[in-house]
C-alpha cells in the first residue's frame, strides 16, 4: 500500500493550477484534503503522473453567507463548516448533514470540493446539493462555468468536471426563514458512509400545505438524486400520517438501489422508505 511514483506541484494561483491540468491532461489529478485520494493511490486504483495540490490557491477556503445564500469554497473543510458561527442558522440542513460525515480526523482535512468531485453515491454533501438546487463553479482554461447539482453527478465517482477543470465553489440558494427540513441517514457505525440517507426541505403555505418539497436521496442509486414522485405526493398537501406514508411508498418504488455486500437492493429500497418517513415526521414535528 505504497503510492506509485508521481510528481507533485502546489501552484500559487488558480490559473497556474488549471494550466498544469491542461498541460498534463488525464495524467494529472487534483489533491485537496487527500482523505479519499491517498487511499486511492495506496490501493493503486489510480496512478497519476502529477498531483496538483490546491493548498496554496488563494480564496478556495472561503465561506460566504449573504442574502443570495451560502457559498462554500472548494477547499473548505468539514471542520470549518462545523465550527462556523453563522452557518447553522444560514443553512441548517447543510450544517446538520455535515455532522454525519466521516470521523474526527478525516473531518479535519476532508473538503467540500473533494467530496463533490469524488461523487461517492452515498456521500452526504452531494445529496444536500441536489436537494437544494446547488450551483457548482468549475474553472477551466476557457474561464468559469456553472453547473447545477442535478446535472453535475453522472454516476458513481463520475461528474461533469473535465480533466482540465477545477471545482472552485458550490453555492446554496438562500434559505427562507421557517423552512421545514430534516436530514436522516442510516450507517452501520458512526462515521461510516451511509447505507442510505435523505435530505429534505419544504415550505408551508398559509393553509399549512407543503410547497416546494425537495427530497434528495443518497446511497440508493448510482448517484444522489431527487425523489420526484415522493415530492409530488406531498406538494400541495398537508404533511400528515397519510401523506407521509404515500410519500414513503412512492420513494421506495422510484429508487433503483444497488446490491452489494453491505446490503441487498430490497433492503435499501425499504430503508429509503423508512428514512423518508422519518425525515418527514421529523420535519413536521
Amino acid at each position: 500500500m505504497k503510492f506509485p511514483a508521481f510528481d507533485y506541484a502546489a501552484p500559487d494561483s488558480l490559473d497556474e493550477a488549471v494550466a498544469l491540468l491542461a498541460a498534463h491532461g488525464e495524467d494529472a489529478m487534483v489533491l485537496a484534503g487527500g482523505q479519499s485520494l491517498m487511499p486511492i493511490l495506496a490501493f493503486r486504483m489510480a496512478a497519476p503522473s502529477l498531483l496538483v495540490d490546491l493548498k496554496k490557491v488563494p480564496a478556495l477556503d472561503r465561506i460566504d453567507i449573504g442574502a443570495e445564500g451560502v457559498t462554500l469554497g472548494a477547499r473548505s473543510r468539514w471542520c470549518d463548516i462545523e465550527r462556523h458561527a453563522g452557518l447553522a442558522a444560514a443553512h441548517p440542513l447543510l450544517a446538520e448533514a455535515t455532522r454525519h460525515i466521516a470521523h474526527y480526523q478525516i473531518r479535519n482535512r476532508g473538503t467540500v470540493g473533494g467530496s463533490l468531485a469524488l461523487a461517492d453515491p452515498a456521500a452526504e454533501l452531494p445529496g444536500v446539493a441536489v436537494a437544494c438546487d446547488a450551483l457548482l463553479t468549475l474553472a477551466g482554461p476557457g474561464g468559469e462555468r456553472h453547473v447545477a447539482a442535478a446535472e453535475f453527478f453522472l454516476g458513481p465517482m463520475t461528474t461533469a468536471i473535465a480533466p482540465d477543470e477545477i471545482l472552485t465553489a458550490v453555492h446554496f440558494p438562500a434559505w427562507p426563514e421557517n423552512r421545514r427540513w430534516a436530514f436522516q441517514e442510516f450507517a452501520r457505525r458512526k462515521g461510516d458512509f451511509a447505507l442510505a440517507g435523505v435530505a429534505l426541505h419544504y415550505d408551508l403555505d398559509a393553509q399549512g400545505r407543503a410547497r416546494d418539497m425537495r427530497i434528495g436521496v443518497i446511497g440508493a442509486s448510482d448517484r444522489p438524486h431527487r425523489l420526484h414522485a415522493a415530492e409530488a405526493t406531498m406538494n400541495g398537501s398537508a404533511v400528515d400520517a397519510a401523506t407521509i406514508a404515500a410519500a414513503a411508498a412512492a420513494a421506495s418504488t422510484e429508487v433503483s438501489p444497488m446490491e452489494d455486500h453491505h446490503a441487498p437492493a430490497d433492503y435499501r429500497r425499504a430503508l429509503v422508505a423508512t428514512l423518508v418517513e422519518r425525515a418527514l415526521q421529523e420535519a413536521a414535528s
Binding site: 490501493f43 452501520r188 457505525r189 458512526k190 462515521g191 461510516d192 458512509f193 455486500h261 453491505h262
Partner: peptide, 24 residues
C-alpha cells in the same frame, strides 16, 4: 468476510470489514 462465487474477497478493507470502534 464476504466472498463472491468466484472466491474473490469482497471485504478487503476496514471500510468493508466492519470492526467495532471505541464508540459502538
Amino acid at each position: 468476510f464476504v466472498y463472491d462465487s468466484e472466491g474473490q474477497l469482497l471485504t478487503g478493507t476496514l471500510a468493508d470489514y466492519l470492526l467495532p470502534t471505541a464508540t459502538d
